[in-house]
Each structure stands twice: as structure tokens, then as C-alpha cells.
Design a protein around this nucleic acid. Structure first.
Lengths: 266, 266
DNA sequence: AACGGTGTTCCATATAAAGAAACATCTCGG
DNA sequence: CCGAGATGTTTCTTTATATGGAACACCGTT
């Protein structure tokens, strides 16, 4: 009689005790409470007290949880923190975003790009172009300033205020096209609008004939770790900008969550 | 025949499969590599391939690890990050530091204190006094300004520059004793010296007859989460300040590591 | 197309988790 | 101060389940 465990279906052979232990760990992350007692856990997960106690003892031996000898209550341990920091250290935004870029380009039928920041400059690090005749294509690896174009402004708008002011106080903000905004006060207004709106727009600010919407992916410090954009020829993009922005924000929201930003403890 | 497992001694009954699973997780945090394969893990931990595979399948069902379908290699998953962030969110500095405060007081034979910041003020949240006749004792929960006394200056010195300037630009920095420094420029110099030195000193700045050294405990954002101090009567403290500072920095360094500051992923 | 390398499944066996109950501690409130 | 009713922990037998050798499946190479 093949009794179905709680294991996710179609994953193959599993180790049920390990799953119970994982459930215990997740409970610590979910519960608003910092500490949990044996009975509390047993009731919440439908396990017996001895089972929970054995699991906690094993988790304790690897410092995934720790016990407060005073109250005999359990909390997450140092190793739990190490796992989280290791995850955050090893994320490769480009790899993480690759599938989303492809999907974003497919659904919008425009070019989707990913940018990184290098000091006070920005570079495209990835792009996916749609399968149609007239498209936009960007150059990977070429540095651009932070004040012109949707991707650049998406970075700048969400930096700490001191960094923004440092950037705006440089002697001369370069003019890349006749639509580039180079007045610091005008830029401050624009950045403020971007923060309210959640994404940046550009029509030929950086490159004549090109238009785009862009939004940042936030890391667990709340700073922009990367910027995703959807861009296309300016003539047809006017009508698409809004729907592109919607798809864009869905993607950047998901990626930000994967980067540790604003996780809901459910 | 009672075969000794790898479980830490004297912890009570355990669940060995859970320990093996925990070892797998720790391996991801230890290894410089981001991804690991089944065989790689099995070899590293001395387990059989099927055992490792079953464990990974279970960990995967709870998203503690994830699999790259392309390469069939495994990496830490979203839940691992959640555990880390939950740990960092829930640290109770006071509880964490309690034992160290006691040891610090014992080894220096002076009073050890812990302070938290509440906006632009500071309060003592814990203290341990030594067992001798003439000692210093502070009042827990009473707010003090950030510019007078070692503990206060230890907070102020390591705040973001913008916050420091905000604080120094208030109309009138209060004078608590005749040794209190209230000149903004003199304070800027002093804060800079504190940052270089790593800890703050005070002789009767906040309280007549009292002297202290203090250093911050940093959180994973690199900001001071709390301040530890060693303090005593000003007459005898002059000769002790340097040795107290050494013990102090050992403690704040260790606590900072526990808070996620500057963790090495060995 | 055969190889050496992965990851994955099968299956009989042995092990180690499960759980009821008893025990040990702790915490209140009268 | 002392029991009542929690909690966490251990014992012990039964039973469920993790184990690992071997076989299988799936690559990317040569």
C-alpha cells in the first residue's frame, strides 16, 4: 500500500524525517515569534513531542537551532544565518534573470535588457531580442552615465540620497542626445517621479530613436542590485510603454524577492 | 552494540538522518563553490549516492536547496535565505551579550554595560557590576544624548555621515558636566579619532567622577546595533583604560560576528 | 557508437525513527 | 510553602523507513 507522504509529488524518492526537520526550520522563519517550544512545534506540525525533540537535538548539533538553557525554548542558530548569507553571496543576478528576460521579451515582443552598475556608470550585461524585423539591440559592456535613459535613471533614483547628490554635483552632466536632461533640478524632479511610479521611462534620452521602461531589482539592503528594462523603437513604443511596465514590474518584484528584498514572513 | 554516531556528545536522543541532511546544508555554506553535485557531496561526507539523493529531494521539497535542471547540480534555495534573514531579524542583542558582559566585568573588575539607541538618544539596557567596594553603576532605561560619554560617542561615530551631521546641527548640544564637549567641530575631530581607534573614551564627560571605554557591535548592514562599555571611577580608570579597551574590542568583535557583520565564508 | 561520467530508481535487509507512557522539571496560584 | 498542571525529556517495543549494492538512465566526449 503506497502511502502518500506530504512530500511534493513527482520529486522522486525522499527522506520523510528530513522533510519533517525542514518543516521545523521553516516554522521558525514563518512564526513571528523568535523562540518556539517543543510542544508548540509538535502541535503546529502534527508531530509527536519525542519526534520533535529528536529533530531539534540533531539540528542543535549542527547549530541550525540553539536552545536557551534558561527557558528550554529553541531559536534559529548561527548555521541558519550562515546558510542565508551564503545564498546571498552566491547569487548571480545575470543567471537568475536570464529566464525572466526571455519571457519578458517574448510577452512584450520587444527587447529585454539587464544592466549592472559600476561605480557611477552603468553597463548592459545581458539582452534578449524578440523575433521580429524592426527591433532594438544594445551593446553589452559599454559604460553609460547614470542620468540619461530609463535603465540609468532607474539606478540613480533608488540610490541613497547622498550618492544622488554627489552624482548631480559633478561639473557637467553629459548630453547624449537632444532629449537628454542635464539640468540637476529637472533631474531631481524626474528621479522623485520615478521613485513614486516605481519605474523609469525614457524617450530618446540616451539614444536617438530608442525608448524604454526600466525598474531596479533590489537586494536585501534595499539597494538596486541590477536594472531590467524593456526597450524598442520610439515610434511604436509610445503605445506599448504602459503594458511593458506592468510586465516589467512583475519580473523585478519576483527577482527582488529572490535577492532577499522585502520578504513577507507569512 | 551502541555505535557512536557523529552526533555531538551529551545532547540526548537524536535523528541521524537529520544530521546528515544538516551536514549537506553546511557543505553548501562551507564550500566556496555555489553548486554541488550528488557524487561530490557523497564523497565529501562519506555517504552513499542514494542517501544523498534522497536527502536532496527532501530538502528540495521545502526549497532549502534548488536544482538547476540544466546541469542537474544543486544550490541553496530560497528557504535557506529566509532562515538567515529570520535569524538576523530576531537577534535579541541583550540576550546575546549577557554572558559576555558578565565575563567582561569579571576580567576587568569594572562595570560592563550594554546600550541601545532610540532615535537620537541612547539608553543602557543591561549592566554587570564587579564584586568590589567602589564601583560604578548606571541607570537602565534612562535616555542620554549621543554626544557625551564613551557609549554615546561610540554610537554617533559609526552612524552614516548624514545622520551625524543632522545630529551635530541641532541648535544646542547640551552640557552634562564641565567636561562635556559641545563644540561641533571639536566633536567631529573626536568622532574621527574614535573611528580610527575603533573605540571611544570618556573621562567625566557625561557623569562627574565616571570614566569609560566603549565600542559598537555592528549588525549585517555595518551599522551599530548596540554599544558595549566598560566603566569605572575616574581616578583608578585612567590606568586601566587601555587594557579594558583590549578586552572590550575582543567582545564586540565576537558579538558583531554573531550579528552577521563581516562573516568569513571559510 | 561505445565509453566514462553523471544522477536516479529498485529492492531486500537492517536500522533507526515513531509514539505511548512514565519520568523529570518548571511555573504558577492558593 | 506546596501541590496542580503545565512543560521538556527518556524509556522501550513496535513498526516504519532509511540504507546501499547493483542495475538503470542519461548525458557530453572521444
Amino acid at each position: 500500500m503506497p502511502q502518500e507522504t506530504r512530500a511534493a509529488a513527482r520529486l522522486g524518492q525522499s527522506a520523510s524525517t528530513v522533510e519533517r526537520a525542514a518543516d521545523v526550520l521553516v516554522l521558525f522563519a514563518e512564526a513571528g515569534r523568535r523562540t518556539l517550544g517543543v510542544t508548540e512545534i509538535a502541535d503546529a506540525l502534527g508531530l509527536s513531542k519525542p519526534a520533535v525533540h529528536r529533530i531539534l537535538t540533531s539540528l542543535r548539533s549542527r547549530r541550525l537551532v540553539q536552545i536557551d538553557p534558561e527557558t528550554r525554548r529553541y531559536a534559529l542558530g548561527l548555521t541558519a544565518m550562515r546558510l542565508g548569507l551564503a545564498y546571498l553571496d552566491h547569487i548571480d543576478v545575470r543567471r537568475l534573470a536570464a529566464a525572466d528576460l526571455a519571457e519578458l521579451s517574448r510577452s512584450t515582443r520587444e527587447t529585454a535588457t539587464l544592466s549592472s552598475r559600476v561605480g557611477t556608470q552603468r553597463v548592459y550585461v545581458d539582452q534578449v531580442t524578440p523575433d521580429r524585423e524592426v527591433i532594438m539591440s544594445v551593446s553589452l559592456g559599454v559604460p553609460f552615465p547614470l542620468h540619461a535613459g530609463a535603465s540609468s535613471k532607474a539606478f540613480l533614483a533608488f540610490l541613497p540620497e547622498a550618492e544622488i547628490e554627489d552624482y548631480l554635483s559633478v561639473d557637467h552632466l553629459s548630453r547624449l542626445t537632444d532629449r537628454t536632461v542635464v539640468d540637476p533640478d529637472a533631474l531631481r524632479l524626474e528621479l522623485s517621479a520615478i521613485r513614486r511610479r516605481g519605474y523609469a521611462r525614457s524617450f530618446a534620452e540616451r539614444q536617438s530613436g530608442a525608448a524604454s521602461v526600466a525598474a531596479p531589482v533590489f537586494d536585501h539592503h534595499g539597494l538596486p542590485a541590477a536594472v531590467v528594462s524593456v526597450c524598442g523603437p520610439v515610434e511604436r513604443f509610445r503605445g506599448e510603454a504602459e503594458s511593458c511596465a506592468e510586465a516589467l514590474l512583475a519580473v523585478t518584484g519576483r527577482l527582488s524577492a529572490l535577492m532577499g528584498h522585502a520578504i513577507e514572513t507569512g
